[in-house]
């Protein structure tokens, strides 16, 4: 049995006058330690899938199993990184990092030491007692990464965590996140609309399309790319080949959907 399984999962958003089907009958399974990306245009339900896996939203149909347990039953820690860091501005960086342990009620001197160690690993040791407002976007997102890692999550959910950063910071942070995730051997799902990012970071890529969101095609990233850092993958000769293939699938979908407009 796989580590994480989505079994015919659908989700509807209801409003007073109408409803929309955000994702339609998604089935996928992910192995332990794997890094997969969900790649697709905005509005294809990528973030909805993450919210469902995180247990923040309840799907309207289907099942989500983590290590053969229903996700709603399991008390398994999940690391969720959002588009923006959402560090709490009234807490210091250290206290932001210790937010998870506080909620899990596992705060101790040990966790504090661990937090400082992790902050050191991402180069934030010196700003542990500062407030988020004093930090740059890249630093804040690194702090947000530590905030998820401290809980030793079984699974990492990255919801376009690099999209709000400038390009250089984004490339550096991709390498750092990739390194941390490999070091701690985390299973990870990355949501992105950046083809390059998906290829650079993941082992498998699920290409999705919108209206309603569903999986179109699955790409395996060649093994020689998987073992490189994201920065080096982008320079690898095979990178462009994969990029073109993914591009073709995404463009084809776009023209298809123009020919057959979604009925509402």
């Amino acid at each position: 049995m796989s580590f994480l399984t989505l079994d015919h999962v659908s989700h509807h958003y209801f409003s007073k006058d109408s409803y929309t089907k955000a994702i339609d009958d998604i089935s996928l399974s992910i192995e332990e330690g794997e890094f997969v990306s969900l790649l697709g245009p905005s509005g294809c339900g990528k973030s909805t899938i993450l919210s469902i896996i995180a247990g923040i939203m309840k799907q309207t149909a289907g099942k989500v199993l983590l290590q053969d347990q229903l996700i709603t039953d399991s008390k398994i820690p999940i690391g969720y990184m959002l588009q923006q860091d959402y560090l709490f501005p009234w807490k210091t960086i250290l206290n932001n990092v210790l937010l998870g342990p506080k909620i899990y009620d596992t705060n101790s001197e040990e966790t504090k030491t661990r937090a400082l160690e992790l902050l050191d690993e991402v180069g934030l040791h010196d700003v542990a007692n500062q407030h988020p407002g004093a930090l740059s976007g890249g630093m804040r997102q690194r702090a947000a990464l530590v905030r998820t890692l401290i809980n030793d999550p079984k699974i990492m959910l990255l919801d376009e965590p690099f999209s709000a950063l400038d390009y250089q910071t984004k490339l550096r942070l991709e390498d750092l996140v990739s390194l941390q995730i490999k070091t701690y051997h985390k299973t990870t799902i990355l949501v992105t609309h950046d083809i390059g990012e998906a290829i650079a970071m993941s082992d498998r890529i699920f290409i999705m399309h919108a209206n309603p969101g569903s999986i179109d095609k699955v790409f395996e990233v060649p093994i020689e790319l998987r073992n490189e850092t994201p920065f080096l993958v982008r320079r690898h000769p095979k990178y462009q080949i994969i990029f073109d293939k993914v591009w073709d699938v995404l463009s084809k979908k776009e023209t298809d959907s123009k020919v057959v407009p979604p009925t509402s």
Binding site: S51, A54, G55, I56, K75, P77, I78, G79, Y80, L82, Q84, Y86, F88, L99, G100, I103, Y104, R147, N151, L157
Partner: peptide
Amino acid sequence: VDPNYEKVLKSFGA
């Protein structure tokens, strides 16, 4: 209040 703060906390099971 930005619902994403709550989202962060809920991902910890708050």
